[in-house]
Structures are given as C-alpha cells and as structure tokens.
Write a protein that binds this DNA or RNA. Structure first.
Lengths: 246, 246
DNA sequence: CAGTGGTCTAGACCACATC
DNA sequence: ATGTGGTCTAGACCACTGG
C-alpha cells in the first residue's frame, strides 16, 4: 500500500482539532488518496501540526467515527476502503413529531393481544419464533386525521410489566420510553405499497407507496421491542445530514 | 428545572469514558430524568468519578453528539428536550453496493444534457432556478438487470469540468468522488409510486412502491450536485443503528 | 464577576499486533 | 522487541453568558 507524502494545510478557522480534521479529510473526500493509503502516525502528525497528541487523536477519532479512516494498533491509520457515506437521520417520537409540526396529537389503540412472535418479528428480535410477546396495533393521528400506523411486538421476557398494561390511552412507545431503558437500536427503512388494511387505516388508496420504518431495540443483549411504522409516502420524508468536512 | 441527585454507578467494564457515558445515559434512556433536568457540572462529575476532567468531558461530548444531552456554557448540561433518536445509515456507493452483494456491476447512460436547474433541483441546491447545470439520467445494473435509476444535476459554477465529461462509461457519482471534494451532504428518504418511465427502466409495474434517496452535496457553501436514486421498494432496504448505551 | 463548558498541553502507561 | 493507537492525567487558559 502507498503512503501519503502529505503536506497538510490548516485554514486557521475554528478549533485546532477541527482544522486538523478538515485538513486530513480533504484529500480523502476529493479522492486523491486511494483506499488503503496509510496516513502518518499520530506521532508524526503531532510534529507536523506542532501540537499535542491528544489534539491529533481527537481529529482522527472523529474521522474514524465518520468512516473516512480505519485505525489499527501497531499497524497504523488508513483511508477506509469503502467510502461509505454515513448520514445521521433523526427519528423523533411520533407524538413530538406531530406536535412540532403544529398538529394536534391523537392516539387510537386498534388491537392488543398476547401473541407468539411471528416469523418477521422473531427474526428482527433475534428470539425464537414462539417467544411470548404482546402484539399491539395502533394509529397516531394529527388533527384527527391518520398520520402513521404502528405495529409492535414487546418481548415479555424482557418487559414482563407490559403484560399488565392496557395501552388504551398511552402509546406504547411513550410507555416504553418512560419505563424501560435500552442501549441499542437498529433501523431499516423500506418502501411498500399499502395493503388494504393499512390503506383503510391511513385513509389512502390501496397501493399508495408508503414509507416503513422498522426499529428493533435492545437492552444490553436482550431484545425489548420491534416496531413497524407505516407512513403515507407522499406525506412523509426522512431527512439527515453528514459533514465530515466540518 | 430540577437538578439531578444522581448516584452514578460504574459497571467496571471497558474504558472509563464509556463506563461514565453509560452511567449517565442510563437514567436518561429509561426516562427517569425529565427533559431539561440539569446534570452535575464537569467539575462535580470529575470528583464523583474520581477521574480527570478530560475523561468526563469525552463522555459528555459523546452524549451530546448522540443527542441525549445539551451543553451550554456558563449554564450547564441538561437532558435534551426532544429525545430524538438518531440513527446512522450507511449510504454506499452504488457500484460498491452491487459488487459487495455479489452482483456484476453495469452502467448505462440514458440522458445527458446541459440544462437549467428545474424547480426541485434549484430548491435542493439552493441556487437560482435558472442556474446552469449538467443533467444526467442513468441506470445502474446488477447482473445485467436494472438496480437503481439515477437522476442528477451537477452545478457548472461549482464543477465547470463536468461540462467536458461525457459520462458514457464512468458513472457520475464515481467521477465526482474522484475529482471533486465536498464537505457536507444532506439526505432525504421518501416513498413514491413508480411513474411509467421509471417503471419501464426498472422493469417493474407502474405504481410499484419505490424508495427514493435524495442527496445534495456542498463544497463549503457552494452546492455541487443534487441526485435522486430510485430503488424498487420491494428489493431495497436501508439499514442503520444507534447505540448511545455503548 | 464568576462558573460553565471548550479547548489544549506535555507528558504517561498500556494493549495489541506485527516484526 | 517495537511502534502503533487507546486511554488517562492534572493541570492550564480562554470564551461565553447568566447573575
């Protein structure tokens, strides 16, 4: 693998660690360094920028978080092979999302029953297909009109208290947030044509493109809940951003 | 606003700054601290955890990045009001995405012309509706079958070299990556029903739900490019994760 | 003015992976 | 064995802003 023969330049604006981050990111983002190219060591960068190692380290840590570089002990720091572009999407709580957009929040519980996890839920939760869960189906309303349909499984082995909750006034997402800690979440976003039942609930035509957000939540390594939110596609848009150069 | 009367507990596993991060995150994630609750100052936490300020600071910076807390000088550190759940999605380069999934990558340029930005592109790029751009429409193939349709505007004021590129063999995304640096990107994800032309190109039925990923890229504050990728919805899924408790 | 977070320093010891 | 990044320390000065 090649090595950089870098001559980094600072732009003198903002904190030093950000200047260093930008200086190192620029040739990577413009494609001048092939993936796998080795960057100078922290020690070398410390001398090049005439600063302390902690400051260099902070810049490199941020670049590693952003996926632009990979760091390996003893071996060094390298330009990441996949320039996977990350983006950070904000997934707000549904109620807050509605209220922030000026709507009046409403909630309707449609179904609630104890049920063994179906195949999809079991796969997402990483539990056996027969594991005991509470299944919930509900609709969130904005100004009285359907906004999003929620279908959820809550693992009873992780959250036994869910068995005693009716959820007829409190949305399950909110109840979980206030009662159950979690440490890790995974999301998937996909597009589906609205099936008859979803279309009826959302008051749209069957077949309308809908955005589905799936989320699975864990506490340590115990799966807590799996939820699918279905939004009418024409009315919803997830946004995010990414600024490795900042 | 209330103050915490916290008694944080470390779990003794992993780096200290991660232990501190988890210790502070846990009561926030489980909803025990109302939004706006003030956390102890860095100095106080330094004493509580019997460590140095840099270590506490690192944990707090990470929590702020994750959106769990808000930090204000002179005022203090507070539990964030919206527990907006972030998620980090990886948006790979299309060619790498296809090759990684084992497919054989192909590319077909469908249209290329100089064109003033239309209303959507102008709005996304933040430039006047008449600004000069190159408009491109192309299709990326996996094993010879259509995988995703790309429509793109490249700002000629930011990337004059694009005028001289034919793009008939090199996908514009790859060319841009290798030739034009960027510092900031914004993304939007939505669901649409396939229009006739898109359906024909993707070899799906008109009306099939498709996932659209919009991306706008800037270099400093100059808009570089705006692209819309349209994936057949049933075959594509964006995934991401979030682990504030790690 | 004084307390807060923002940044930075010049060291240190350690774990780890390659040599 | 040695060089790399991973972490940590015990200070420091500064910028900002609420009281």
């Amino acid at each position: 693998m090649t090595e950089t023969t870098a001559r980094y330049r600072l732009d003198g604006s903002g904190p030093l660690y950000r200047q260093i981050k930008r200086a190192i990111a620029e040739p990577i983002l413009s494609g001048r360094y092939a993936p796998g190219t080795r960057l100078p060591s922290e020690h070398a960068l410390t001398e090049m920028f005439d600063t302390s190692r902690m400051t260099v380290n902070r810049a490199l840590q941020m670049l590693a978080d952003d996926g632009l570089i990979v760091r390996r002990r003893r071996s060094g720091t390298f330009v990441a092979s996949q320039v996977t572009e990350h983006t950070v999407m904000e997934l707000r709580d549904v109620a807050e999302e509605i209220e922030e957009s000026g709507g009046d929040y409403g909630y309707r519980l449609l179904e609630r029953r104890h049920q063994k996890a179906d195949r999809t839920a079991a796969a997402r939760l990483g539990i056996g297909a027969g594991a005991r869960t509470v299944y919930l189906k509900c609709c969130h309303l904005s100004d009285g009109k359907p906004f999003v349909v929620e279908e959820r499984f809550i693992s009873l082995s992780a959250v036994p208290d869910a068995a005693g909750q009716s959820f007829d006034a409190t949305p399950p997402g909110r109840w979980l947030m206030r009662n159950v800690p979690w440490t890790r979440a995974k999301h998937a976003i996909l597009a589906v044509n609205a099936a008859d039942d979803i279309a009826a609930l959302l008051d749209i035509e069957t077949g309308t493109a809908c955005l589905q957000v799936e989320r699975t939540t864990w506490l340590a390594d115990r799966p807590v809940t799996f939820v699918v939110l279905t939004y009418p596609g024409n009315s919803h848009r997830l946004v995010g951003g990414f600024s490795p150069g900042a």
